[in-house]
């Protein structure tokens, strides 16, 4: 009887539904993504970031402030203080969830944002300057590790990406920054 009970418990987890417990990842919201990319690549990319990131709370998460300064506005100036807190599409964005899981469309939108930003070499220079590098700096393990600091705060991730970038013999800083920017992992908290 005891053996039967133990055998029963040992096999029931796959026949009765082992993945029923729920867990969810915590992803960065639109404000975090916006701020990170603005910090890394410069304030001149605000319009790109508004179009792809701030406009999509259903993909990135993050509400908008229900105060006067944040009412939905057809026109606003990117130099307005706290413009990023506005409800860009609809006042219902006030209720957007704080965390939205990573989805295919979110990843593709992030990639498109990175592609668009990194078309401009000025943005590449801005990013590299933050870690005391320039476009003429050699793409070696040491330099690449410094650039991973721009996106990743976990040591393991920084090391993984550094090794992979160097091993794949990526030849331009643009491509190095694309790998880091387009990876969905830096948006996982």
């Amino acid at each position: 009887m005891t053996y039967a009970i133990l055998l029963f418990f040992s096999i029931t987890d796959f026949s009765m539904g082992k993945s029923l417990f729920k867990s969810s990842t915590r992803t960065a919201d639109k404000f975090y993504v916006y701020r990170t990319l603005e910090k890394v690549f410069g304030e001149s990319n605000k319009s790109i970031l508004v179009k792809n990131i701030l406009n999509s709370p259903e993909l990135f998460g993050g509400g908008c402030l229900p105060y006067n300064v944040s009412m939905k506005s057809e026109k606003f100036d990117l130099s307005d203080e706290n413009f990023e807190d506005r409800c860009f599409n609809n006042i219902t964005e006030i209720g957007s969830p704080a965390f939205v899981e990573m989805s295919v469309i979110r990843q593709v939108k992030t990639e498109n944002t990175c592609n668009e930003i990194l078309k401009d070499t000025k943005n590449i220079r801005h990013a590299l300057a933050l870690v005391s590098l320039s476009e003429s700096s050699p793409i070696d393990l040491k330099s690449v590790k410094r650039t991973t600091n721009l996106f990743f705060y976990k040591k393991k991730q920084r090391e993984t990406y550094s090794k992979i970038i160097v091993n794949n013999q990526i030849k331009t800083w643009r491509d190095v920054l694309l790998v880091l920017c387009k990876s969905p992992e830096w948006q996982i908290l």
């Binding site: 593709v108 939108k109 498109n112 993984t160 992979i164 970038i165 990526i170 491509d175 992992e185």
Partner: peptide
């Protein structure tokens, strides 16, 4: 988003990202 993405070809970048995610 996919149509926009298609206009940019970055095989080596995608390969590196895939490798990182696979690890």
């Amino acid at each position: 988003p996919f149509i926009e993405r298609a206009s940019v070809n970055s095989t080596i970048v995608d390969k590196a990202i895939s490798e990182a995610l696979t690890s």
